[in-house]
Simulated assay, not measured.
Amino acid sequence: MKPTTEADLADMIAGADGPLCVRGGGTRGVRLDGEVLETGGLSGITLYEPGSLTLVAQAGTPLAEIEAALDAEGQRLAFEPMDHRGLLGTSGTPTIGGVVAGNVSGPRRVSVGACRDFMLGVRFVDGMGTVIKNGGRVMKNVTGYDLVKLMSGAWGTLGVLSEVSLKVLPRPEAAACVMIDGLSDADAVSAMAKALRSPFEVSGAAHLPDGAHGASVTMLRVEGFAGSVSYRADRISALYPDQPVRVERAPEVVAEQWVSVRDVAPFHDHGGDVWRVSCTPSKAAELGAMMQADALLYDWGGGLIWVRVPAGVDLRARLGAFDGHATLVRGSGHAKFQPEPDDIAALSKGLRERFDPKGILNTGLMG
């Protein structure tokens, strides 16, 4: 099924008598029982006001189309959504609805927030075929229940997005990347914490234990006006007087470096399962050692760890109880999402029963 209007979408969901597998651009590799419901027919930017930093688009709009429109006006999606295709070996076209449904957020989340923090409003169809609108085109219009944030990261289990409204931001004039070579994971986490605590507005903090030349590299990004970027990069470098520090200032190189981090490029073309672990940054190195991984990539100053392990490894069993959660991004044999504590699971179940009483939307994906 591929509706081309919101009314078609509502009719299809209202008339469904079995499970529906909700799919955007098909880039996430999610396979569920049920008839496929594609949102790609709901496409197009319906409102873009650069002066008010606001964009409204139908859920099936290709992400590339939105980024091109923003780029033409010197603007961007500041939360830096990841492209999963290289990591998952999928094709298709990333859509803005898929980004919102998965709350997909890249390295800049450490400084500006996640996708859900840029959401102004949503329109969606619940499991009974009812069209629901929440939020507005500017922040002050968000009233009542905050379904805007609830739908961001719900993975289509509470409703199928038909339209989203987002806040966008200007594209910075310049960027630089401060790099420290050869740090251990523990020292890298400490170095990233020092930079993030500084007043120099770091917009990305990542650590690759196996860098391009086999040695580790810790990366700290700064963005903004050219003069400010140059000054802040130098001041950040001075925070590490006893370390081998270098600074990359070429904008195209810096952009390529952070797209590589964003899309977890070091894991591309390598077999095995891939997990995504959210944790307390100060515990990141300790958890990384416990994983016995084939490869690691630390992002968000250590708050996010990308992990590659042999196929079938139960990473959650290796880690045991910890303050965070592990999501299976690529692989099979284990639940995709970390099992929820009983009280949270009961709340989630109640929400699904409220918004999808027939139990037909992406059944079984999130418990």
Results as ranks from 00 to 15, higher is better:
P341G: 00
P62F: 10
Q292P: 10
V36G: 15
P209C: 13
S162T: 10
P266K: 04
H268K: 01
D83Y: 03
Q338M: 12
R316Y: 12
P241M: 02
W300C: 10
G89A: 02
E223C: 13
V274T: 09
D343M: 13
A345L: 13
D273E: 03
I13G: 11
L304M: 08
G34V: 01
V309N: 03
L20S: 12
V30L: 08
S43M: 06
G18A: 10
S198C: 00
G135D: 12
H207Y: 09
D356V: 01
L183D: 04
E6W: 02
E223W: 05
P281V: 04
D185M: 09
G367T: 14
L158P: 11
E65F: 03
E340H: 14
T93S: 15
W275C: 00
A238Q: 09
A59L: 08
P107F: 02
K140V: 07
Q338G: 07
P341W: 02
L88G: 00
L158D: 07
G51Q: 11
S184H: 08
A212S: 15
R316V: 13
M179C: 15
V122R: 00
L120V: 01
G41N: 05
G271F: 05
K149M: 06
W258Q: 04
T327Q: 07
M1F: 07
R235A: 14
G303P: 10
M1Y: 12
R109S: 12
V112Y: 05
C115P: 06
G40A: 10
R85K: 05
V99S: 08
D11F: 09
P244M: 06
A10M: 08
P3E: 04
M179I: 13
A215G: 12
H84Y: 14
V148P: 03
R249Y: 09
G98E: 05
G301A: 08
